[in-house]
Structure formats: structure tokens, C-alpha cells
Design a binder for these strands. Sequence first.
DNA 1: CTCCGATCCTGATGGC
DNA 2: TGCCATCAGGATCGGA
Length: 270
Amino acid sequence: MPELPEVETTRRGIEPAVVGRAVTRVVVRDPRLRWRVPAALTKELPGRVIGAVARRGKYLLLHTATGAVILHLGMSGSLRVVRCSDPPGKYDHVDIALDSGDCLRLRDPRRFGAVLWTRDHARHRLLARLGVEPLGPEFTGDYLFRATRGRRRAIRDFLLDGSVVAGIGNIYANEALFAAGIRPTRRAGRLDRDQCLRLARAIRATLKKAIQAGGTTLRDFRNGRGEPGRFQRALRVYGRGGEACRACGRPIRALRLGQRSAFFCPRCQQ
DNA sequence: CTCCGATCCTGATGGC
DNA sequence: TGCCATCAGGATCGGA
């Protein structure tokens, strides 16, 4: 269930093996992902050279001269570089074989991920409506302040809205809110300018630290080389309901916000 | 426009 | 051990 840091970790992990290589073959063992894997991928990608591996929100892009592969890892997806001769497992649905003998392999048990082909990624419907990059220059406290005006939903849910800020998921929304001292249930529009500034800073700092730690592995996340992340040790509220707050010792509270769990410290977060 | 719930799918976990 | 319910890192879609 990769969020921005896990996707960025994946991007960095696969980049050296992929950039400058030509695709020799695409094998789709099961096309039934979030959207059906298009025949155009198998048809148009072989022979193309991958010029760059980019990330936009939680999407990965493999750029070629004639189009781009759009990848999303959904809830359970992982992307690894393996040898083409390695036998695929039950959930290894898509292989992109390279002229080096390596193979970019998508594993995704729940099949919420996506592999798409586009000739014009800038216009693609999934990418076009994405909000700003939280680690980019446009994401400031002022942006967050303006974006939250008039919004009545809980700030935790607001942060999960990819059309505002792209790439924040449930773990990092909760962690950043703890770091900013704001309760996840607080209505977005009720944050003042200073709190938005603190929250934007907390989001950037949390995501950067998580990337440095190679992401968070709660269950099945693996980087491009199959290794788990290390940020789970640094989590301060996520998944810690009932445990002592690392700052003040009070028990962390868990609650359900919408369909998903939220965690906060009743003392450190107002 | 904004918000919320349902939905896709499989596996892990915990209660009985 | 088995069965069942619940939960999981996403995000799109449809309807209120």
C-alpha cells in the first residue's frame, strides 16, 4: 500500500536498471488490474528505449520517445527488477523485459494497481487532475491555507485528496498531523494560517524522512531490489492505538474517520 | 462544487 | 482446525 515515499523509493530503486535500456518484450499474465492492461502496451512498447523514470504523486512514469507507461501500485503492488529467467509467482501479473536481460516485474495480489500506456501523459485523465507535489515548490503553507478555505471535511480526509496534494496516504497524513500538533478530525477550513504553515512543513519533513528511510513496510512493501523499508520504526501514531505517545506518554487514540482508521495523541494534538 | 459511501480484490488476523 | 467477520498503505465513481 505504497504512498509517495514508497513510490519514490521504488523509482530510485529501478531507475539505474531501466534508464537507457530498450524494451524487448511485454508479458501480461493477467490484464485484470484496476483498469484492464491495454493491448497498446504490448504492441507499442517493445523496441522503445526508456529515457527516464519519473514520479507524479503515487504514479510512476516510464518515458519513451513515443509515449509513456503509467504505473500505479494500488494497495498491494510492488515493482522489482529481476532476471527474466526468474520464474514468476502467482501475483506477478506484468513483466517488462529489457535488453539487459533484466525484467521489470509488477506483483499485485489485490490487483488495485494499474499499468497503462499513453502517448500524451500531460493530458492523461489520471494525471491531469492531480494536485501539487507535496515536495515541490508550489506546496506551501499559503497554498494549503487557500486550498482549505470553505472546506468542512476533516483535515485527514482533505490531505488524502490527490486533486489538492498528490501522494499523501493514510500513514503520512496521520504522521504529519501529529508532527504539526493538529487532530485528524479537525475541519480543514478551521485551520488558521499558522497551522497551515506548520502542517505544510510537517508534511514535507515527514515525507523526506520516510524517503531517506526507504519507505514504510507494514506488511508487503519492497523496494526495487526486494528489500523492506525502515520508516515503520519511526512511526509515532499510525498503527499505535492504545500505546504510549512517544512525546508525552498518554495513550494514542484510534478512531474511524470515514472508512479508514485515524490515530492521534489527545494531548499533543489539538 | 463538496462530501460521503460503495466498490474493486486477496490475504492476514483475531474471536469463537 | 475451521469458519466468519473485520481490516489493510488507494482512489474512482455515482449520488445526495
